[in-house]
Every structure is written in C-alpha cells, then in structure tokens.
Simulated scan of single mutants.
Amino acid sequence: MSDDRKNTGAPDRDRINLNEDYEVQYWVQTLGITRDELKAAVEAVGPTANAVREHLRK
C-alpha cells in the first residue's frame, strides 16, 4: 500500500525518507541542518535516524 499523502502527521522516527517533502522538512528542522546536509548524511550512513544523528555529531 502506498503512502497516504493526505496523512502528513509525524513521520516514522526511525527512518528518513528523502522522497517525501514533509519528512525532509521535519528532519531538517529537527536536526537543525540544511536539505543538502541531510541528503549527504543519508547517502553516507543510510536512512536510519540514529545513524544520521551519529554521523552529524562527528
């Protein structure tokens, strides 16, 4: 089943989906980084939020 684009509540806290604008906005705001920084972090360590947070701390 595909995502319901009308249901834009809080995104899955364990994964970062770069294909959904509302999720990208959430993570950019939550992590205090730019879209480009978020994309680079996800490409470097994968889409899990914990891995991205660890990567950003370095």
Score class of each variant (00 low, 15 high):
M1D: 06
S2H: 10
S2F: 13
S2C: 11
D3G: 01
D4S: 07
D4E: 14
D4C: 14
R5Y: 07
R5M: 08
R5W: 07
R5T: 13
K6H: 15
N7L: 11
T8S: 01
T8K: 12
G9V: 04
G9D: 02
G9P: 11
G9E: 13
A10N: 10
A10T: 03
A10Y: 08
A10E: 09
P11K: 08
D12L: 09
D12P: 01
D12N: 14
D12A: 02
R13V: 09
D14C: 01
D14V: 06
R15I: 15
I16P: 15
I16W: 15
I16R: 05
I16E: 05
I16G: 03
I16K: 11
N17S: 03
N17R: 14
L18D: 01
L18S: 00
N19Q: 14
N19E: 09
N19S: 14
E20H: 12
E20I: 13
E20N: 11
D21R: 13
D21Q: 09
D21I: 08
Y22L: 02
V24N: 15
V24L: 09
Q25A: 14
Q25E: 15
Y26W: 14
Y26T: 11
W27R: 06
W27T: 00
W27L: 03
W27M: 00
V28A: 13
V28I: 12
Q29V: 14
Q29S: 15
Q29M: 10
Q29K: 08
Q29G: 06
T30Y: 03
L31I: 00
L31Q: 08
L31A: 06
L31G: 00
L31P: 00
G32A: 10
I33Q: 03
I33F: 05
I33P: 05
T34Y: 10
T34E: 13
T34Q: 12
R35V: 06
R35H: 05
R35T: 04
R35Q: 04
R35N: 07
E37D: 11
E37K: 08
L38S: 03
L38C: 05
L38E: 13
A40L: 14
A40K: 11
A40M: 10
A40Y: 04
A41S: 12
A41N: 06
A41F: 06
A41P: 13
A41R: 15
A41E: 07
A41C: 09
V42Q: 07
E43M: 06
A44S: 02
V45K: 07
V45Q: 07
V45E: 02
V45S: 07
V45G: 02
G46H: 11
G46C: 09
G46N: 12
G46I: 03
P47R: 15
P47Q: 13
P47I: 05
T48N: 10
T48G: 01
T48P: 00
T48L: 10
A49L: 12
A49N: 09
A49E: 01
A49M: 04
A49Y: 07
A49V: 15
N50P: 00
A51T: 15
A51I: 13
A51K: 08
A51Q: 11
A51R: 10
R53P: 06
R53T: 09
R53V: 08
R53K: 11
E54P: 06
E54M: 03
H55T: 05
H55A: 00
H55F: 15
H55N: 14
L56C: 00
L56R: 07
L56G: 00
L56F: 07
R57K: 08
R57N: 00
K58I: 06
K58H: 04
K58R: 03
K58N: 05
